Simulated scan of single mutants.
Amino acid sequence: MTGTSRMKMEWLAMAAAAAMIGTPALAQTTGKNERQFPGQLDSKSPKDDDHPYQVRTMPLEAGKRYAFSAESEDFDPKMRLSLADDNDEEIAKDDDSGDGTDAYIEFAPAQSGTYRVRVSSVGDSKGDYVLKVRDLPPLPAPLRPTASGSSNFVFKHYSGALTQTDGEIRGRRVDDYLFRFEGGKQVLISMDHEDDDLDPLLQVYPAANRQGADPIAGDDDSGGRMNAFLSFTPEESGDYIVRATGSTSDRSIGSYRLRVGQQP
């Protein structure tokens, strides 16, 4: 075999390998800092647990912001982003954050390099898709706000315990507290569990309708570690019920601490 023939065969092998994963050279540039990579999942596509996929590689610059979207009318697309190295460690993934069932990821690389974008089907469906990569503008500098005023909340603390002798609503033990709140002023309420068997749940009702099905405010886990925290502003001054309970019937027993405060 001549040297020219050998070089031609090596070039053809490299081209075939690139075609299997797709390359940025196939991109179609639009007028919005966007590159489009049309693709197709078919019977020849590699599979991961029966999900066909296609991989494309592209260079990304550290510190720049990119938006990736995988759009298809033929299947529900999913995206996976990783560094193009031997580890292939997953950096980001998405299924339905785009329009409809399209996939969407915003990403700012910590290091420059070549990255892999894998487009796959959520199921075993196949068909055409378009991978779009758009350059995003840098984020503006963080604001350095100047406060226009301040509010000092005074919280009152209450220790309580939900037991088998407490009232029961829909299978959950409850403690109902009566408070008077002023209309138009923010109220903050927290409920922290002191017993691992209790998963706190807070609800607020008008005092005249505490047996109603729908509270005017409620929270389960916003306080962290299963604790409850809520903020609401009553429209009118009056009496309100703050209900301390558990999220489910089997997690509504135990000790807790309640904190209630209103904007002065």
Rank of each mutant, 00 (worst) to 15 (best):
Q263T: 13
L202W: 00
Y104L: 09
M191H: 04
M226F: 14
S249L: 07
E90R: 03
G254A: 02
V260Y: 01
Y256A: 05
V119I: 14
Y158N: 08
F68V: 06
G167N: 04
S237W: 11
D95K: 06
D214G: 07
M58I: 13
S120N: 02
Q54V: 15
S159T: 09
Y240R: 04
S97P: 03
D88K: 09
S247C: 05
G183H: 04
Y115L: 11
Q262W: 09
E89V: 13
V204N: 00
A108P: 02
P264F: 03
G167V: 10
R118N: 09
A161T: 07
L26V: 12
L198H: 01
D199K: 02
D95L: 07
A19G: 15
P138F: 02
I169G: 01
V187M: 04
A17G: 01
D197L: 01
R251S: 15
I105K: 08
M9Y: 10
M9P: 00
S231F: 08
A103Q: 02
S82K: 01
G261F: 00
D250N: 13
Y53I: 03
E71F: 03
N33L: 10
F155K: 00
K93R: 10
R56M: 14
A141N: 03
D74Y: 11
Q40C: 12
A17W: 00
F181E: 12
S125K: 10
P38M: 06
G218N: 05
D199V: 11
Q211V: 01
G246I: 04
D48W: 03
R118P: 05
A27K: 08
S97E: 06
P77F: 05
T233P: 13
S150T: 09
D49A: 14
F68M: 05
R243V: 13
T29A: 03
D176P: 09
L12S: 04
E106R: 05
Y240I: 06
M14H: 11
L81E: 13
A207Y: 08
H193V: 14
S69T: 02
G183D: 12
Q164E: 11
L60N: 13
D199A: 10
F179N: 14
F68T: 06
Y115P: 06
T233G: 12
P215A: 07
I169A: 09
A70Q: 05
L139T: 06
D74E: 15
T4N: 08
A108C: 10
T23V: 12
A92N: 07
K156L: 08
S252P: 04
G212L: 07
A92Q: 07
M79S: 04
I105C: 12
S231G: 13
R118F: 00
S69D: 02
N33V: 05
L188R: 15
Q164D: 11
R116N: 10
